[in-house]
Nucleic acid binder design. Structure first.
Lengths: 203, 203
DNA sequence: GTTATTTAATAAACTATGTCAACTCAAACC
DNA sequence: GGTTTGAGTTGACATAGTTTATTAAATAAC
């Protein structure tokens, strides 16, 4: 007897609405600019309502970050699945990476711009991150085995990642001048990574 | 008649002590964790004292960021000056870049992790940033002219920057696993950039 | 239908922080 | 000595994260 608790679906819906509000506000206001009161107003609830579904503000953003990881991982997996061979798969993953950052800059920022000091490091976040990078790591491993590229897979994976993240984050930080943009760098970057990794001196 | 205003040196000293306190607190607490009251206590003053020297909290961090840019620029210029030829200069700039991030991770974070939403974009900051990258841009231009590397200088500069920033920021975000660290990537990255940029297909 | 009970949601309070306005007070100069 | 100028303090305000007490809603038992 007594009022029944929300079903898992209802809870999920509540959490989703909070996360969506947080994402939307984060896009234009940044972490500091997002207030719980604004989130609550957006979801049509009172200021303290989110506390029923989240530990605190940081937890809300952790969840938002995990959601972004999932979307990113899905895009990566899809790109990987479309590939015909290991080398093609790497190219597609790189393209998908850049494309995701262009399509969902806020999600990308959420993944990288929330530092441990802002959003306390949580295991769920670590997991989500690891999952998101798995397609790229797998593809590198395959490509090395297939002889498409050579070198230590871990080193190569980090190089790919670093290169992609580097141009992407500079793009998002609006550091490109003279009309030079992310897409203009994509091809040279590709050339660099492939020609470099075929160089036997870097293994 | 009346008490004389502080000399420029005195004002500079006051501003410096505030900036140093902000830097130190930022290192362990992040932007949000730094309170004006903590800064003031660190400088032995009362909470509102910094307002005599800075517009607001954001201005303090803008100044800190400009100071970081200056130190970075000095390190870059020093590295460039030590070089014997254009190709050597590029290598040294890359090494100095990575070394700076290792030596002063907080300064590096200050340069890149304070987003416009947190610290309002100010012209002084833009200037400082431009100055900091000038050595690298110059070196790329020289290296292209000297034939050490080939391609569009702007594209190459951004690629260098992106690669360096990519591995550096991943390092600072603590994303490296298996004992792999920044220094282990430095040589392969160098190989990539040079071998790639010598490839005529990327110009 | 009433009542008891459980849970969602609210409202009000508490605390901390950025910021500001009025005040204090020491230092210089007439 | 009195006056003025400016550095620094004090206390207050507004806002935001968070907590606690309370209300409202929903269902089962009677």
């Amino acid at each position: 007897m007594g009022r029944p608790p929300f079903t898992d679906e209802q809870i999920e819906a509540q959490r989703d609405s909070v996360i969506r509000a947080a994402e939307g506000l984060f896009a234009e206001l940044g972490y500091d600019g997002v207030t719980l009161r604004a989130i609550a107003k957006m979801t049509g609830q009172s200021a303290a309502a989110p506390y029923r579904y989240f530990e605190n503000k940081a937890a809300i953003f952790n969840a938002a970050r995990v959601a972004a990881y999932h979307r990113f991982a899905a895009a990566q997996a899809e790109a990987a699945a479309r590939a015909a061979n290991p080398a093609d798969r790497l190219t597609r993953l790189g393209d998908a990476y850049v494309q995701f950052a262009i399509d969902e800059p806020d999600a990308y920022r959420l993944m990288f711009e929330l530092k441990p000091s802002e959003a306390a490091r949580a295991p769920e976040v670590e997991e989500g991150g690891a999952m998101a990078w798995q397609p790229l790591r797998d593809a590198i491993g395959e490509a090395v085995e297939a002889g498409a590229i050579s070198g230590d897979p871990d080193v190569l994976a980090h190089l790919f990642w670093a290169g992609l993240h580097g141009i992407t984050s500079l793009h998002l930080a609006d550091k490109f001048r003279h009309g030079l943009d992310l897409l203009a760098l994509r091809d040279p970057m590709k050339t660099l990574l492939f020609s470099g990794s075929q160089d036997p001196s870097n293994s």
